[in-house]
Design a protein around this nucleic acid. Structure first.
Ligand code: MN
Ligand code: MN
Ligand code: ZN
Ligand code: ZN
Lengths: 137, 137
DNA sequence: TTAAGAACAGGAACTATTCCTATTTTCTGT
DNA sequence: ACAGAAAATAGGAATAGTTCCTGTTCTTAA
């Protein structure tokens, strides 16, 4: 059996290290800026390709529903996200902060057409920076 | 007091009528195709501008988290959405099909930084068309 | 060692959406 | 009804996040 081994090139390693070193859920070009300090000749295409690769390998998360740009997250333990409606900052919520309960009887009709496989839940709010700005300005 | 009156131009009226005549949650250029049959000279910019206007006036919904394109929905009664992971089709679920319960104690820590104002919940699944295609092909 | 495959840098292409501008339509006060 | 002001429109250019392409370099496995 051909083992689909994980190939960790220097570029992939450094992308992963940088992502693991932040809690800011950076966009692709924020990752680009972080990685370029250590690999000045890396290309943005390599950033995108390898973020996709690492996500496909199950090593990082890809948040494609938050804001207008994709964001990436190296923490794989189950948790929820909250996004500031003013500045777009993304924060973490503990996994048990909220739960989604589904009423089967109400789903039955929908299940005739759609087979439900999962869901996406995200929270919206205002971060502390934007709240203080709002009070002063 | 200056009353901010609702301006319903012919273009806006027809966009609204077409959107109210479908349950397909169309994208902007699908609305464009629908409206162009009745207004052959309308521009895509007018479609976008007026879909934004109608959304700002609270007359339609704008689904910006589903798939890679915005989708629009004229049914304003509260309901949830389910999106086919194969073809991107969007369907409705009754509002009481699912509920999100939030554990206040788990939120307290997060509330110190983020003030939570709302949330977004959407379901993922496979539509019946894609299920039959999968079985045959 | 060598051939095949994978990943790379750099930059072009793609595309959904927004922006710009000259023209037309609608509104408001007289 | 009329004139001036404000808003909306058509058409097309610009923007920007992401993907794709190409020639080159690196890695892996006989
Ligand atoms: Mn996170
Ligand atoms: Mn709907
Ligand atoms: Zn903020
Ligand atoms: Zn489908």
């Amino acid at each position: 059996m051909p083992t689909t081994c994980l190939r960790l090139t220097p570029q992939r390693n450094i992308i992963l290290e940088e992502l693991r070193g932040t809690r800011s859920h950076p966009t692709a070009d924020e990752v680009y800026d972080m990685v370029r300090r250590r690999l000045p000749h890396i290309s943005l295409g390599t950033i995108y390709r390898n973020l996709d690769y690492l996500h496909a390998q199950g090593l990082i998360r890809k948040l494609d529903k938050i804001g207008s740009q994709m964001r990436f997250d190296a923490s794989m333990d189950p948790h929820l996200h909250i996004c500031c409606m003013e500045c777009g900052k993304v924060g973490d919520l503990p996994e048990d902060a909220a739960s989604v309960s589904v009423r089967q009887e109400a789903m039955l009709d929908a299940e005739k057409t759609f087979q439900i496989t999962g869901h996406w839940l995200e929270f919206h709010g205002v971060c502390s920076d934007c709240r203080t700005k709002g009070k002063i300005g």
